[in-house]
Simulated assay, not measured.
Amino acid sequence: MARPVISCERHSLRGLLAVALALLLVCAVSAGVSAGQAGAQGLTPQQLAGQRVIYSYRGLTPPQSLLDDIRAGRAAGVIFFGENISSPEQIAGVVAQLRQAQAESPISRPLLLMTDQEGGLVRRLPGAPVPSAKQVGQSPDPVAAAFDAGLGAGRNLRGVGMNVNLAPVLDVFDTPGNFIDRTQRSFSDNPFAVAALGSAFITAQQGTGVAATAKHFPGLGTAPAGQNTDTGPVTLPADLSRLRSVDELPYPAAVFVGVKLVMLSWAIYPALDADRPAGLSPMIVDRELRGRNGFRGVTITDALEAESLNAFGTTGQRAVAAAAAGMDLILCSARDTGQGESATTALADAYAGGQLDPAAFDQAVARVDALRAGLR
């Protein structure tokens, strides 16, 4: 795929904005996917629920239980971590094995096969993209570097048979020393630059056939230093003006260039919802992301086992709460297929028992189905 011609002042905001507008005009695809027929007629509640759950496993070899769940039509996909990958050849063999199990299932759509390939310190596969988001943002031609990073990520994942990347990060840097800063995962402290670079990454990567995921809505740039949603509760101090004029600003650009997925954070944002983390908050999912920012694609949780959710019950209870809030895909990242099975069973019981709105549930399955229909 050819790189777009870049002609702008290398470090100026005006140059970044010009390139962002060019990308929006030239490379835009229709935003999101609309809910349609999910092709799910005849599926059991357990199979329907499975179309919303991403599984994980421990080690280099997928367990028989995961293969059985896939063959039974009880899994939407699999996330791969560093411990699952010893080489591109090894993980390509695993992907082929999982795809064969899917071919034997009652679900005709391809599995969602994903990893975190952001660049820098956050890479599960060897190879591209090598620079971190921070290094991309500080490069002499940042938009070209972001495009190259997205292109490299897409080609890398596509080369081993994966079809979803949980990247790019659209968090706008604010607080030195926080977990976004320490891992160099933010493109910039300038929201317009983040919008431009994120859009370039998304456009290039999705041009390879690998879906992109913008994260972590509505933003983790103001997370206090020393706190991490993986290890405990995090409350962000940003007021509503900061959230909407800075942290959320990159998302309309990502939506406009057709980003396929958005991951919500597990932080609490008192300016939007003082009681629940973003991924469990209907106000944030529906009002902010879908309403205010116009996203129509697939929402995905961060790791369901994050310790920031310790107050919200078991894996199954968290899965149901996330689905009730408007999350389409539930990401079970404990490297334990039993956790995916628990989430699937809880969702199926809540669906069959009327705890979850059947129409909203079916619409979520339809959005996921539409995403899968467009991938290989």
Score class of each variant (00 low, 15 high):
Ser265Asn: 03
Asp357Pro: 00
Arg52Ser: 00
Pro140Gln: 02
Tyr351Phe: 02
Val143Ile: 04
Asp349Thr: 03
Ser342Tyr: 13
Val143Glu: 10
Gln41Thr: 15
Leu16Glu: 04
Val255Gly: 12
Asn156Val: 13
Thr299Val: 07
Ala146Gly: 10
Val130Tyr: 00
Ala96Val: 08
Leu280Phe: 03
Ala49Trp: 00
Gly313Tyr: 13
Arg296Tyr: 03
Gln355Lys: 10
Ala101Ser: 02
Gln184Tyr: 09
Asp349Ala: 13
Pro277His: 00
Ala193Pro: 11
Leu197Met: 11
Gln205Asn: 14
Gly226His: 11
Arg376Trp: 04
Pro277Gln: 14
Phe179Lys: 15
Thr222Ile: 10
Ala322Thr: 15
Ile202Thr: 11
Asp174Cys: 07
Met283Val: 05
Pro218His: 11
Pro282His: 12
Thr229Met: 04
Ala278Val: 10
Val160Gln: 07
Thr231Phe: 04
Thr235Glu: 12
Gln355Met: 10
Gln90Glu: 13
Gln100Thr: 03
Pro270Cys: 07
Gly159Phe: 09
Leu280Ala: 00
Ile54Cys: 02
Ser265Tyr: 04
Lys134Cys: 08
Asn178Asp: 01
Ala22Phe: 01
Glu104Asn: 00
Ala370Leu: 06
Lys260Gly: 01
Phe217Ile: 10
Ala359Pro: 14
Ala72Val: 01
Glu341Asp: 12
Val298Lys: 11
Ala359Tyr: 10
Ile79Thr: 07
Leu48Asn: 05
Leu272Pro: 13
Ala133Tyr: 11
Gly150Ala: 09
Phe80Pro: 00
Val95Ala: 06
Gly152Leu: 05
Asp328Leu: 00
Lys134Ser: 04
Ser7Thr: 14
Pro233His: 13
Ala321Thr: 09
Ile107Ser: 00
Leu13Gln: 14
Ala22Met: 07
Ala133Trp: 08
Phe187Tyr: 12
Arg290Ile: 05
Phe201Leu: 08
Asp302Arg: 15
Phe217Met: 10
Phe80Asn: 06
Leu280Ile: 15
Leu25Ile: 14
Ile180Met: 05
Thr235Val: 15
Arg292Asp: 09
Phe187Thr: 15
Arg3Pro: 15
Phe295Pro: 06
Arg292Thr: 11
